[in-house]
């Protein structure tokens, strides 16, 4: 998938997005918060692309920009070569058919007043697809594919009669029912139990096969991303730090932040000598210049002169493995990860 270097399905070019805090009546206010700082990504047809970062890193903003819930200040987003940030009217409606989103919180993403049938059939109704019996058939198929079977047991229920996992399946069915070519899954399992998360992952994988869809999977967990994704991008404070294939990122992480994320994962199984990078500073550096590398305040191996002055750009260090670091430490940590050592979520 990632090997096929043909035209990307989705392309983000130099995306910048800032949020402005509300100006208060007397105070100065109006502070700008940079959510995304010139983010560029390419997502290829058929892959599951993982976007990993901590809270506030801007990963959800990327998803919201892609589905046009928000517009970027700068940069372009292209789906199948078509610029999407300027779409209006009919073209926007066609775009909405192709791109769907699964939201983080299944307790908030379903209208409490609508039955499961009404929720899942809404996209069909909005886009005037099929007659009522065809819609029923589509809804039934989508629910079954999302793991709610027999669908007859669920169609007339209301969100308050469903568990969290069932609600998320309804949300997935709603995203699937239009047979979109691109789906943004924004931390779809962060509110769910681990066992249900695993089932949701498998549904997403099946969905990719069945619909021939491409997924952007947004998560804070490298372990989940490794399980699900073909490629992973690591984002920190609105800046992409490292992009590479999932195996490469987990087994051969280069960026100190990626290494810190891996260090932070709980491990179980036969780990032997634990692989440990220790790239995170115990105490953050204060008084950092705004032009510094975004990770400089927390980076242990940072070069005090170079890293405090400039922001590194993404460089291809290994084939298809991009890292934004001035002095990438190519040496891997001591200790055998081993095949029997697992990262937990």
């Amino acid at each position: 998938m990632a090997e096929g270097r043909h035209n990307p399905l989705l392309e983000l070019r130099d995306i910048r997005k800032t949020y402005r805090t509300r100006r208060s009546l007397f105070g100065s206010g109006g502070r700008e918060v940079v959510a995304l700082n010139s983010v560029s990504l390419e997502i290829y047809h058929g892959e599951i692309f993982g976007l990993v970062g901590e809270s506030g890193s801007g990963k959800t903003t990327v998803g919201r920009l892609i589905v046009r819930l928000e517009d970027p200040e700068q940069g372009s987003i292209r789906l199948e070569g078509v610029e999407v940030t300027k779409l209006r009217g009919k073209a926007l409606r066609d775009f909405r058919r192709k791109v769907q989103m699964i939201f983080q919180d299944p307790y908030q993403s379903l209208n409490p007043q609508l039955s499961v049938f009404d929720t899942v059939s809404e996209p069909l109704t909005v886009h005037r697809i099929g007659n009522s019996s065809q819609r029923e058939e589509q809804v039934r198929k989508a629910l079954t594919a999302a793991g709610l079977s027999p669908p007859e047991d669920y169609v007339f229920r209301y969100p308050h009669q469903l568990s969290g996992g069932q609600r998320q399946r309804v949300a997935i069915a709603r995203a699937m029912v239009l047979k979109p070519s691109f789906i943004v899954a924004d931390e779809p399992t962060s509110m769910l139990d681990a066992s249900i998360s695993a089932q949701i992952f498998n549904i997403l994988i099946e969905m990719r096969e069945k619909l021939d869809a491409t997924l952007l999977f947004i998560t804070h967990s490298l372990a989940a991303a490794r399980y699900l994704c073909d490629r992973i991008a690591v984002i920190y404070k609105g800046n992409l730090m490292e992009i590479g294939s999932a195996d490469e990122i987990i087994q051969n992480p280069i960026h100190p932040y990626t290494r810190a994320l891996l260090d932070a994962l709980p491990r179980f199984g036969d780990c032997g000598e634990m692989k440990y990078y220790g790239t995170l500073l115990g105490r953050e550096r204060e008084y950092v210049e705004p032009s510094a590398c975004p990770f400089f305040p927390r980076c242990r191996p940072a070069d005090e002169t170079k890293c405090s002055r400039d922001k590194p750009l993404l460089k291809e260090i290994f084939p298809s493995h991009f890292v934004a670091c001035f002095e990438p430490d190519l040496k891997q940590a001591e200790g055998s990860g081993g095949d029997t050592c697992f990262y937990g979520t």
Partner: peptide, 22 residues
């Protein structure tokens, strides 16, 4: 601000539909 309104928008619902249905 609730995500189900955003979900309706992503599904392509018009403003009128969001007001009356959601």
């Amino acid at each position: 601000q609730r995500p189900f309104i955003e979900a309706a928008r992503v599904a392509g619902a018009s403003h009128l539909r969001i007001i009356f249905r959601h």
